[in-house]
Computed example of a mutant assay.
Amino acid sequence: MNKTEAIARRILGWKLNRWDRWFDFENRKFIPVSDFQPDKNLDHAMLIVKKLEQFGYTFTKSGDSEVRFNHVGGAGANLAEAITDAAYSIADTSSLPDGWV
């Protein structure tokens, strides 16, 4: 499972509807896999921040390339990559079911 897939499943709670699209149950809409690129698109990365804040995580950033969600940090070439990196660390180590980080 790659970073984007782990985040979509375990943090956002999306389900792969077909090989090429996610289904967002909360908003009742389909999202093409190619259209969700949180490491390249800051708006997509901020969806992750919003969801993790709903789960009780506190988001802090240090400049444009480092972030933290509580005690979990991430870094990247830009803010979107840093958010994706930190979120993946949370999603990858979580033993909770998808959508319940």
Rank of each mutant, 00 (worst) to 15 (best):
A86Q: 09
K3Q: 11
Q54M: 10
G99D: 02
G73C: 05
D64E: 15
E26C: 04
V33K: 14
S89I: 03
E26D: 10
K51T: 15
F59S: 01
I31F: 11
E81W: 01
G74M: 00
N17K: 14
K50N: 11
Y88I: 05
F25E: 12
K15D: 13
L96Y: 15
V101Y: 05
K15V: 09
I83A: 01
I83Q: 00
K51Q: 14
A45E: 04
P32R: 07
D64T: 14
R28N: 13
V72D: 02
R10Q: 11
I7W: 00
V67Q: 00
D92M: 10
G99N: 03
F23I: 13
V67K: 01
R9A: 10
K3E: 10
L96F: 15
M1C: 14
L16G: 03
R28G: 08
D24H: 07
N2A: 07
I11T: 02
N2I: 12
K51S: 04
Q37A: 14
L16S: 07
N70R: 01
N78W: 08
D39N: 11
V72A: 05
G74W: 00
F36I: 04
K40S: 14
E66C: 10
E5N: 08
D85A: 12
F36Y: 15
I83N: 00
K61G: 05
E81N: 05
S94G: 12
Y57Q: 05
S62V: 12
V49Y: 01
I90Q: 02
W19Y: 08
M1H: 14
E5F: 06
W19I: 08
E5Y: 10
L79W: 03
R68Y: 13
D39T: 08
A77G: 09
W14K: 05
F25I: 06
W14D: 01
H44F: 09
V33A: 08
D64R: 15
D24N: 15
F55Y: 14
R68N: 08
V49Q: 00
A91M: 13
S89A: 09
A86H: 07
G76P: 13
R68L: 09
T58R: 14
F36D: 03
F55C: 01
A91K: 07
A45V: 06
G99L: 06
I7Q: 00
N17W: 11
P97F: 09
N70K: 02
Q54P: 00
Y88L: 03
D98E: 10
V101Q: 15
T84A: 13
F30G: 05
R9C: 07
A87V: 03
P97H: 09
I31S: 06
L16M: 09
G63V: 07
K29D: 04
